[in-house]
């Protein structure tokens, strides 16, 4: 069966979606990813959708689910590289992906995740808080 590979990079999990998703594939991804978060105790999940040309309400819901589930397991989720046409369409559709962090590319996404982890540590020490 077709599967989307999940890479582990230090405390983060990295997923690059290269194909257009159909529902079952997206559901499998949600399942695999959450299991991986639990198994590896990942602190962050980065999903690169720069090659995805269609995100409809189902796919949007999967992204939201992944973010909420990861959050319960103490991992931040960031979706990177959404195409302008996809973003315009999602807004028109009425889907704002509340609770999902976004970044322009993998590099900025990684930076954001690192800051998130840093923020948790520093918040505990109460030193400073950063914008991101």
């Amino acid at each position: 069966m077709e599967r989307i590979p999940i890479l582990k990079m230090g405390p983060f999990l990295l997923v690059t979606i290269q194909v257009d998703l159909y529902d079952r594939l997206a559901l499998t991804l949600e399942n695999d990813l959450i299991n991986m978060v639990s198994k590896t105790e990942a602190k962050g999940v980065l999903i690169d959708i720069s090659a995805v040309s269609i995100v409809d309400s189902f796919m949007g819901r999967i992204l939201g689910n992944i973010a909420s589930m990861s959050k319960i397991m103490d991992a931040a989720t960031v979706v990177v590289g959404m195409q302008p046409a996809v973003a315009i369409t999602l807004v028109e559709l009425g889907l704002t992906l509340a609770g999902v962090h976004t970044a322009l590319d993998v590099e900025q996404g990684m930076e954001l995740l690192r800051n998130k982890i840093g923020q948790i540590d520093t918040d505990e020490e109460g030193l400073y808080d950063s914008f991101i």
């Binding site: 979706v79 990177v80 590289g81 959404m82 195409q83 302008p84 996809v86 973003a87 315009i88 999602l90 807004v91 028109e92 704002t96 992906l97 976004t102 970044a103 322009l104 590319d105 900025q108 996404g109």
Partner: peptide
Amino acid sequence: IKTVSAARLMGA
């Protein structure tokens, strides 16, 4: 508001 929301989805 739509423009701002779309930009946010992209990470800006």
